[in-house]
Nucleic acid binder design. Sequence first.
DNA 1: ATGTCACCTGGTAGGTGA
Length: 254
Amino acid sequence: MKLATWNVNSLAVRLPQLLDWLAANPVDAVVLQETKLTDDKFPHAEIEAAGYRVAWHGQKTYNGVALLARSEPADIVRNIPGFDDPQARVIAGTVDGVRIIGGYFPNGQAPGTDKFEYKMQWLHALREWLREELAAHPELVLLGDFNIAPEDRDVFDPVAWAGQIHCTDEEREHFRRLVGLGLHDAFRLFEQPPKSWSWWDYRNLAFRKNQGLRIDIVLVSEALKSRVSACTIDRAMRKNERPSDHAPVIVEFA
DNA sequence: ATGTCACCTGGTAGGTGA
């Protein structure tokens, strides 16, 4: 089984790339972030024609998530139950017995802002819900754009980024607490090239200079950990003519 | 390097978010 996550930064712009990518990488399921489409504009017909069932949850202009799967996802959940949130950031479904939770975590802007406080509240609500989801679904994958660089080795310049958004102690503590529920960072189960990033700023020639962050993450439950056989970042997608600023992350299970 | 991209409103640019 292969799963993936990709922040497309506008599905309206990136749909052709998504369809090409799926043809070349026929994963069993993929979660998307930043679709930036209201539900009535979601291109479900094109995705279904490519052989995928799809569930989506969007809004105008910002955010928006989707779950694509070869087989029909069951028990779809949109956003975090009990957490009243006008922003469309979560979609979950069960595919071939595996609970898949796709998330577009809040950016948070900067410590001390309202957006950072929202990020903290959102992360807390996610964790409380995940505790229940893990109890109900031992085989669980939480993946998406976490907007957190878990450790300094996930940052191209950890000194410059110290205390900045994605790298604050508070965000990293939330990440550790999520992992503490019984999850494992699939990418770190394997030896990886140094300076492995999943996001590069559009500005500052960041991709050319390989100045990025690893903020797109796959967490797998204890029951799945031993079955993970690979986890890779498809950084070639960032070389496209009109790329997303994020590269897809793929996880493979034996 | 101030270096971009995508979206919106309301325009043949400016603001917001990332």
